[in-house]
Amino acid sequence: MPHYTFLKFIWPSALAMLVFIALPIMSTSVQSLFIEHEKILETVENCTPFGCKEITKVDLEATEAQKAENPLGKFNGFGTYTNRNHLAFSELKQAWRESNGLNEFLAEVFNLPFYKALSFTLSYTFIVTPFVIIIGFFIALAVNRLPSFLKGPTIFVCLLPMIITPLIGSLVLFWMIDAEGIIGSFLQSIFNDPNLSLKASPTLTWIMLFVYGIWHHTPFAFIVFYAGLQTVPRDTLESAMIDGANRWGQTRHVIIPHLMPLAVFISLIQIMDNFRVFEPIIGFNAQASATSLSWLIYNDFRSGDGDMLFGSAAATSMLTIIGVSILMTPVIVRTWRANRPSQGVS
């Protein structure tokens, strides 16, 4: 295809990605170097019959004018990155100096907002992803063995957790395990403990979020594996049968190798999706015990008195982007190798 024809076909798509993905990343990186203006304070003398007092208040007009003049805020270099809400270098140093023993140090570290969110995000990614792949694989195998009239309805039901809006899905589960919801109160009556609440304990909250993540993402792995199973070459399977492989042997030597590229594909997508975990935290109202990087950014926009903390959000965003890039590097390199045009293509 000549270059100009290619360009004619690709430009809308490329332009959309350039303007709304590549540019925003740059915009974020610029914003992360700036910080909101400080409020301009003015001192006025406030006189009452009992005497005069000097009070300080925000000069709203001046603050607005300053903001309008320079919406980015003022230059702060990497200051935002290193403050307490992000990488918190000085707090880390202090914790290192003052804590005795690694455990205490770690406890201190995981109290810092960024590290707390990072630890949850990473745990979520690396616990949910393997479970999703394994459970999805077995569901696919099992559904593939069903008689064909059952396949359609079963696939439909199995897909439900995936198609559901993440916020809604987590709300639905949240309502069920609420202390007053059906599962929550059922558990209370079983254990005869009216104060039992899954929400109260951080550990249980984490587990709850993991379970939700597995529940939500497994159907994706299932459907991809299931589609892959439909393309397993019959000849190979049959020759394995003739070679004397039993069912497990066929699975191990024919089916799993055939599905291996798909497993890579699924883990790629899953790592991407799980690393941005966000909606369940809102849905489960879990921010007290579990936060994620995406949630931190959201929180910067929603915090306080209506002022959005662009600088802080941008710095967290940049750190998140760096994090996801590090995670994706091995898989992307692999994809690059696998899809690299074999001979030289001009």
């Binding site: 709304f20 925003p24 990343i25 941005r276 001009s346």
Partner: peptide
């Protein structure tokens, strides 16, 4: 052509960006 391949790799990287980090670039 080889650049088609690079566009795909770029798309893969773009796919990895958490949506909310992009939002912080838009707002």
């Amino acid at each position: 052509f080889r650049y088609a391949f690079w566009i795909l790799i770029a798309a893969l990287i773009f796919r990895a960006m958490p949506h909310i980090t992009l939002v912080s670039g838009y707002l």
